[in-house]
């Protein structure tokens, strides 16, 4: 329930400290989008589709289900934080090379779920990859090329230690 009261919340987004003035009922999804992190998409608003997945202290969560007030002091990663046009993450390159992107609406959430998987488990089995992407609904690709993209990026964290972030 939204009230007029305003509170201050501080968290780290993509490595930078950010301060927000929020209402107690605000969803993390809305706070991030209003702050310009438009890669965080709203697909359903009830935690089913995964389009709004972000990494909260390194773990993938649906930001539509997280009250913004809950992330005080936490570290958040969005897709904006893992690759840039000049320096895309190897996982993003693998998605491109494998044809894993069609309409693109589920892509940021899928990248983050894949990122968390490969960081913690550099050489996942096929079933582990499927499980990691189970929460990212995709209506375009039939998932085949997304699984191939994650498979193709196995070991990318081991090879590129620079992508490891503090606290993850």
């Amino acid at each position: 329930m939204k009230t007029d009261s305003i509170m201050t919340m501080t968290c780290e987004i993509n490595g930078s400290e950010s301060v927000f003035h929020i209402h107690p009922g605000d969803r993390l999804l809305d706070v991030l989008r209003h702050a310009g992190f438009i890669s965080v998409k709203e697909g359903c608003g009830d935690g089913n589709c995964g389009a709004c997945i972000i990494l909260l202290d390194g773990r993938p969560v649906n930001s539509c289900l997280v009250p913004a007030a809950r992330v005080e002091g936490c570290a958040i990663t969005t897709v904006e934080g893992i690759g840039t046009p000049d320096n895309p993450h190897p996982l993003q390159e693998s998605y491109a090379d494998h044809g894993a992107v069609q309409c693109g609406f589920c892509t940021p959430g899928s990248i983050l779920s894949s990122y968390a998987l490969l960081r913690d488990n550099p050489h996942p089995t096929e079933n582990e990859i499927k499980r990691a992407l189970d929460g990212n609904a995709c209506r375009c690709t039939g998932y085949v090329k997304k699984l191939a993209a994650v498979r193709g990026a196995r070991g990318c964290f081991a090879a590129d230690g620079a992508n490891r972030r503090k606290g993850e």
Binding site: R33, F37, I38, S39, V40, K41, E42, T78, V79, E80, G83, T84, P85, P88, Q92, Y95, A96, D97, G99, V101, G104, F105, T107, P108, I111
Partner: peptide, 21 residues
């Protein structure tokens, strides 16, 4: 040729602008 589509990089980087954005 199985080339990378031109719309893909922005979508991967979270920079593609959809109606709600």
């Amino acid at each position: 040729r199985s080339v990378v589509r031109p719309d893909v990089p922005d979508k991967l980087l979270g920079r593609a602008i959809y109606a709600a954005d």
